[in-house]
């Protein structure tokens, strides 16, 4: 119990640190950030329009007060969920844009994470159990080789071959224009069709870390004394592999889940952009491209919060799976 309470406290602390980081980043550079943003927005004009600067300042929550008051105000707007208005999607609010894109990324991310984890862990476990056999060599080498390929490059090739050339899948977007978003078959099947290529692009890379991690953990554990004792006990191979090998070897992988969530969300910027997928990654890309500062700040904040929540879930799961941390050790 202490473990879970402590983990939750750490989560709150990390969340606070992340929110504060998001507050600090725009203020890191010397000079007035609002003024600099305005300069960036109008690269051709030499003078800066003070009204524009004032407007940006309001949008960023950067009033002419001292930094502590700014910080308090920033926290207040966060609690109220007021993230301002997007420049590039005017007149939509940032909140509205996030609401539009979040579900797409959530579904794509969760599904690929789950499949990648399960497939990768299973392949890694099997490779370790049949260590140095042909399956192990092929899997380990294949995963290592695949890991060296740039993901954007693979995604582009998939897009070209499977969509442009062969026309198996749509070339981009989240669903076709004639489908009405909602719980209807036309929309769901269209959305599924559109998400296959992005998902495959992610899934080619997602299992690599799990495969190699699981294999190395399990190879070590299969040499450990308690696994040798399991053999001496005359247990079946299946039981040794699952309950003595894989059961313990999977723990570091579970601990790594949180990092993987960050990886998938980070990678979604590239993948969603290539496939014009209407998720948060693409939204962040566009915000960055268009210098839409309120939007990029908020999307980044959401990504961090998402990662931290995943971290919390992974830690809880770890606590459930490992009695050593659950029951103080």
């Amino acid at each position: 119990m202490i473990y879970f309470v402590r983990r939750f406290a750490v989560f709150l602390l990390t969340l606070w640190a992340a929110i504060t980081l998001n507050f600090i980043i725009p203020r890191l550079q010397p000079g007035d950030p609002a003024e600099r943003i305005v300069r960036r927005l109008n690269p051709n004009s030499r003078t800066v329009d003070p009204n524009q600067v004032e407007a940006v300042r309001k949008m960023l929550g950067l009033p002419d007060t001292n930094i502590f008051e700014q910080y308090l105000q920033y926290l207040q707007t966060l609690v109220r969920g007021e993230f301002g208005v997007s420049y590039s999607y005017f007149p939509f609010t940032v909140t509205h844009m996030i609401g539009q894109t979040l579900p797409w990324t959530l579904v794509l991310g969760a599904v690929t994470l789950f499949i990648g984890f399960v497939v990768g862990t299973l392949l890694g476990a099997w490779a370790a159990w049949r260590r140095n056999g042909p399956f192990d060599s092929v899997t380990t080498l294949g995963a290592t080789f695949l890991g060296t390929l740039p993901s954007f490059w693979i995604a582009l090739l998939l897009l070209y071959v499977c969509a442009f050339k062969w026309g198996w899948f749509p070339v981009g977007g989240g669903y076709s224009g004639d489908a009405q978003p909602g719980w209807n078959w036309a929309f769901i099947s269209s959305a599924f069709e559109h998400s296959v290529l992005p998902a495959v692009s992610i899934l080619l890379f997602a299992p690599i870390g799990w495969i190699l991690g699981m294999r190395n953990n399990m190879v070590t554990i299969l040499g450990d004394d308690y696994t040798r004792l399991a053999k001496a006990k005359g247990l079946s191979e299946r039981r040794i592999a699952l309950w003595y090998g894989a059961r313990v070897a999977v723990l570091p992988n579970v601990a790594g889940l949180a990092l993987a969530v960050g990886g998938i969300l980070g990678g979604s910027v590239v993948i969603e952009q290539i496939f014009s997928y209407p998720g948060m990654g693409r939204l962040l890309f566009e915000a960055l491209r268009d210098g839409d500062y309120p939007l990029m700040q908020t999307v980044f904040l959401f990504i961090i919060i998402g990662v931290l929540l995943a971290d919390l879930v992974a830690d809880f799961l770890y606590g459930v799976l490992d009695p050593r941390v659950r029951r103080g050790g």
């Binding site: 450990d224 004394d225 005359g234 059961r247 009695p323």
Partner: peptide, 22 residues
């Protein structure tokens, strides 16, 4: 396998690590 533990059993050198931790 059927002979193991039923006929022949063992206690290891480092029994500290010979129990499954989970």
């Amino acid at each position: 396998r059927p002979m193991r533990w039923r006929d022949i059993s063992t206690v290891f050198q480092s029994s500290m690590n010979s129990l499954n931790p989970v």
